[in-house]
Amino acid sequence: MPAPITARRLAAGEPPINFAAHQFRAGNLAGARDDFEQMLAMLISAIHPGARAIAANPGDWGIDVLLGDLSGLVVIWQSKYFWPAVTRSSQAQIRESFDSALAAADRHGYQVSQWVLCVPSSLDPPTASWWDRWRARRQRETGVLIELWHETVLREMLARPDAAHVRRHYYDPYGPGPNRPLREVGPVAAELDQTLFVRQLRAAGHSEVESAKREYFNADLLAREVHAHGAAAEVDALIEADGVAYGIWEALFNAAGQAHPANPLLPGLHAAVMGDIRESVAFPAALNAGAVHRCGLMHRIVQDRRAGWVRHWRRIAAEEAA
């Protein structure tokens, strides 16, 4: 049986491509969008000499990268940093981007022959079904060839010899080093208000949850980075760290339940768990995770519906899944 793709690439000296690297470098999703777009401009120009980025001043005419002349026939690439997946909420943006590109072409007297949507992730099943129908219909209506460059397509292109410099520049310098940097939550903070781990905190009476969001955001980036990198030692360390955090929660949850048999809010549970996680020396050193990341791993456990901060946490998790 052949070795897994990740193992073959590591053996060949090529680290796997992790599109979350744009978030690590920029520190937030807004910066990641710009960084991803700049990478695409380099990649496309490497594969299609003559392609060029178009600056938004004040608008970009619905063009991120262009091949051709704006007096004739053009190919347009549209960058959208949808992360970690392309979902129903992205559909309106996709439609608007395509319509904007064609409207600009009509206004300025050139013709779009091909429109390519570039995303660093994959479509979930409902959105993939929508995309297939929308693409077929709009191609018939407009005569424009519509393509999707999703994460698999982009990785294949970045693995080509003529794109080696792009891969090296954006993805090869893997790893945050011995001290993992902390990232600010930024624009995604409002989106985290709807997450299960925040709902569980609210149920326990927590009114301030901004530090919890920061912890979760950084731990989630860490976990995605580790899995994308594929190094066995770090993956094992992440699994062990998850087990340590879960074990601390389980012991203190049972103790809180015994100490407060009539109080469903289990007062002090969250503070006790996070305090023990911060002070614990049981977390594996190979993960290079500080206190913020370790606390965030506990929030990920809650988000995964494996724990909570009140006695009836399972009911809250079930309501979230419904």
Results as ranks from 00 to 15, higher is better:
Asp99Tyr: 03
Ala30Phe: 13
Glu210Met: 15
Glu279Val: 13
Ser121Thr: 06
Phe82Gln: 00
Arg311Ala: 06
Ser122Asp: 13
Ile277Asp: 01
Ala282Cys: 09
Ala32Trp: 08
Ala219Gly: 06
Gly175Tyr: 01
Tyr216Gly: 01
Ala11Met: 14
Ala212Thr: 03
Glu250Gln: 12
Pro178Ile: 10
Val209Lys: 07
Tyr171His: 11
Ala189Asn: 10
Ala317Thr: 02
Lys213Glu: 14
Ala203Phe: 02
Phe98Glu: 00
Gly31Leu: 00
Arg140Thr: 11
Ala255Ser: 09
Phe82Asn: 00
Arg305Asn: 10
Arg305Lys: 12
Trp309Tyr: 11
Arg9Thr: 05
Ala289Asn: 06
Pro4Ile: 09
Gly308Asp: 06
Ala164Met: 00
Leu145Glu: 14
Pro181Met: 10
Arg199Met: 15
Pro161His: 07
Trp115Arg: 04
Ala282Thr: 05
Leu266Gly: 01
Leu221Asn: 01
Ala321Arg: 12
Gln303Cys: 06
Thr152His: 05
Leu154Ile: 14
Gly50Met: 12
Leu70Gly: 06
Ser113Arg: 14
Trp249Leu: 01
Phe197Lys: 08
Gly257Arg: 09
Gly62Ser: 07
Ala245Asp: 13
Trp130Val: 11
Tyr110Pro: 09
Ala256Ser: 05
His22Met: 10
His227Thr: 15
Glu215Tyr: 01
Ser129Cys: 11
Arg311Lys: 07
Pro16Val: 01
Lys80Met: 12
Tyr246Asp: 08
Ser280Asp: 02
Arg160Pro: 03
Ala262Val: 11
Trp61Ile: 04
Ala203Tyr: 02
Gly230Tyr: 10
Val244Tyr: 12
Ala11Val: 15
Arg25Tyr: 04
Leu123Asn: 02
Leu297Phe: 08
Asp162Tyr: 09
Ala136His: 15
Met157Pro: 07
Leu238Gly: 05
Gln111Cys: 05
Glu279Ile: 14
Ala289Phe: 07
Met1Phe: 15
Met1Tyr: 15
Leu67Met: 01
Leu265Pro: 07
Arg88Ala: 10
Ile239Glu: 09
Ser89Tyr: 00
Arg214Tyr: 01
Leu182Gly: 13
Asn254Asp: 14
Leu43Pro: 04
Asp220Thr: 11
Ala272Cys: 04
Ser280Glu: 02
Ala228Asn: 07
Ala286Gly: 00
Ala20Asn: 13
Asp60Glu: 07
Gln258Trp: 09
Leu117Gln: 05
Asp99Pro: 03
Cys295Asp: 06
Glu225Ile: 11
Arg311Trp: 03
Ala21Gln: 11
Ile54Glu: 02
Ser211Gln: 07
Val185His: 03
Met274Lys: 08
Cys118Tyr: 04
Gly308Phe: 05
Tyr216Glu: 00
Glu37Trp: 14
Asp304Tyr: 15
Arg25Ser: 01
Gly62Tyr: 04
Asp132Thr: 11
Asn288Phe: 07
Gly68Arg: 04
